[in-house]
Structures are given as structure tokens and as C-alpha cells.
């Protein structure tokens, strides 16, 4: 067994949580065995999980606790106001941002950034290109097979880190349409922040009751939670440096504990809690199969 060190990252909160829940979550992360914490809004520019003034305070507390903090930016940028918000985050973050749209790469203009999972980087020349533009870390697109990630990892530009989405409902698609509002017969412009009622998204079922997808505002996710805990050694062997755990409202501390034990290869039994969301676990993408598949 290789002993190459891997880090654990906590991804941005993809849902609209109550302010107090989010503050409690980040306070707990200060003491949690994770190395990197991504903060900020990736899904919907209308949401305010925390106020603009809260984020620097949360970030400072995490930095004081020894965490690397990265400010994530919006994936679907349409309006001028959204471009302005992205620019403000980049200007204030001192190179610690995650770009999820080429607009952010363009605005960084050579300043360092993390190439987020929503940039389409599928091959070596594209990875080399974004690295030359300042990417210091690459979060692989969720649908990329592990074999491809390994190939890109093996030929990566010097110093570039590779991160993989290892736990959580998979962010699969973005739309201009808010599916959460639509499901409640609300207009997007008058949504009342109804997504705040669903801290892990709304499960969408097939007509024969298979949990299939999850609605999270303008984002569509998998209903199943991708759980790569059983693949940690394969991920390590593929040259992956960082595992991303995407926040969920339940059992997250136990999930962090299980992944910590696995990446440290302490020999302790690393087991995730039983899935609490309908849909169970999935891991098909790592094998280049349908993402919904599950081998465990």
C-alpha cells in the first residue's frame, strides 16, 4: 500500500441552508480533520447562505484553525451583476478562488486559481492550457473515469494538484430554470427561497419509485450519494491528491471521520454511515460506467 499523503477538502455548500446551520457547520469544521474548505455560492446568485460580511469572518476562523480556505465562484454566470460579484470575490481572495466558469479564468488574468469541477477539462492539452493561465489545482469533472484522471495526473504540469469529488450528491447539470420553484408552481423571479426548505435537495423519483435525481434550484444532482470511500486506495494510486466531500445536512462528521481514516491508512475500519438519503450510494463514474451504478 502506498503511503502517499492525500488531503481532505470540504466542498462549498451547494444548498440554501439557514444562516445558523451554516455558521454551526463551519464552526464544527474548524475542529474537524480536514485540510481544505471551499466556501461561497456556486449554484444560485439569489441565495444568501451567509451575508457578504459573514464570509471573511468564517474564512478567518478556518484559517486560524489551520485550514486552507478557497472561495468558490458561481458556475452559471449570465448577468452583469453576477460577473461583478465574481470579480469582487477574485479581487478580495488573494489567489484563493475556485473558478467554475471561463469568465473567472479570464478575470483572474494569470492570478492563481483552482480549476473547479464545472470547467470542462477532459484532456492533457486543456489541463496544460489552464495551468499556464494560473490553475494550481484541478478538480476533475464528475463524469470523468478514474483511468482518464490517472492519465492526466501522470502528465500534469509541475506543481498542479488533482482533486476528485469523492462524497455527496453529484452536481450533474445547470439550467436557467429553477426546478425547485417549478416543482412548487412558483415563478423563478418570485421563488420565496423555497429551496431553503430542502437542505439536501428534493428527490425526484421515476414513476416506479426509483430515486433518480435531486432538484437543487437551477442545479440537477444525482439522488444517490457518490461515495468513493471503498476506492480511496485506487484514487491514491491514480495520483489523486485531494478528496472532496460535499456537505450534506446529516452524518457529515462521521463521513469526514471515515474518509480521514481511509486517507491516513491508519488501519482503522473506515466505514461511512448507512446512507440517509433516498438513492443510496453510487460510484459508477470511476469505472467509466453510468454514474448511477454501484459496486461498493
Amino acid at each position: 500500500m502506498s503511503t502517499r499523503t492525500m488531503k481532505l477538502a470540504v466542498g462549498p455548500i451547494l444548498y440554501l441552508w439557514e444562516r445558523s446551520a451554516a455558521l454551526d457547520f463551519y464552526a464544527a469544521l474548524c475542529d474537524a480533520p480536514v485540510d481544505i474548505v471551499y466556501v461561497g455560492e456556486v449554484v444560485c446568485s439569489k441565495r444568501r447562505v451567509l451575508q457578504k460580511e459573514d464570509w471573511p469572518m468564517v474564512a478567518q476562523a478556518l484559517v486560524d484553525a489551520g485550514k486552507e480556505v478557497v472561495f468558490s465562484t458561481l458556475a452559471l454566470i449570465e448577468a452583469e451583476s453576477e460577473l461583478a460579484t465574481m470579480a469582487r470575490i477574485v479581487d478580495n481572495a488573494d489567489g484563493r478562488i475556485e473558478a467554475n466558469d471561463m469568465a473567472a479564468v479570464q478575470y483572474c488574468d494569470g492570478r492563481p486559481f483552482v480549476a473547479g469541477p464545472h470547467l470542462n477539462i477532459y484532456n492533457e492539452p486543456t489541463l496544460a492550457l489552464v495551468a499556464a493561465r494560473g490553475a494550481r489545482r484541478w478538480v476533475a469533472p464528475v463524469e470523468l473515469p478514474l483511468a482518464t484522471i490517472a492519465t492526466l495526473g501522470a502528465t500534469r504540469p509541475p506543481g498542479l494538484e488533482v482533486e476528485v469529488f469523492a462524497y455527496g450528491r453529484l452536481p450533474l447539470a445547470f439550467s436557467a430554470r429553477c426546478f425547485t420553484a417549478r416543482s412548487q408552481n412558483l415563478a423563478k423571479d418570485d421563488c420565496g427561497f423555497i429551496c431553503g426548505d430542502y437542505p439536501d435537495g428534493i428527490t425526484l423519483y421515476s414513476r416506479d419509485d426509483q430515486p433518480f435525481l435531486a432538484l437543487n434550484g437551477i442545479q440537477t444532482q444525482s439522488a444517490a450519494v457518490q461515495n468513493l470511500l471503498p476506492q480511496v486506495e485506487a484514487l491514491r494510486a491514480a495520483g489523486v491528491d485531494i478528496l472532496r466531500l460535499s456537505p450534506h445536512s446529516r452524518d457529515f462528521a462521521a463521513v469526514i471521520g471515515a474518509f480521514r481514516a481511509a486517507v491516513d491508512a491508519t488501519g482503522e475500519a473506515a466505514r461511512c454511515p448507512e446512507p440517509s438519503l433516498p438513492g443510496g450510494y453510487c460510484d459508477g463514474y470511476v469505472r467509466g460506467e453510468a454514474g448511477i451504478g454501484h459496486a461498493g
Binding site: 469533472p141 464528475v142 445547470f174 439550467s175 436557467a176 435525481l213
Partner: peptide
Amino acid sequence: VMVEGRCALSSYATG
């Protein structure tokens, strides 16, 4: 209905 180039629904269901 999804942003083209940003939709993995089909690979999630079928690979």
C-alpha cells in the same frame, strides 16, 4: 433545458 456542455444527466443514467 440544461446549459449545453454542463449536463451529465445522460452519462449518469447511461454512461
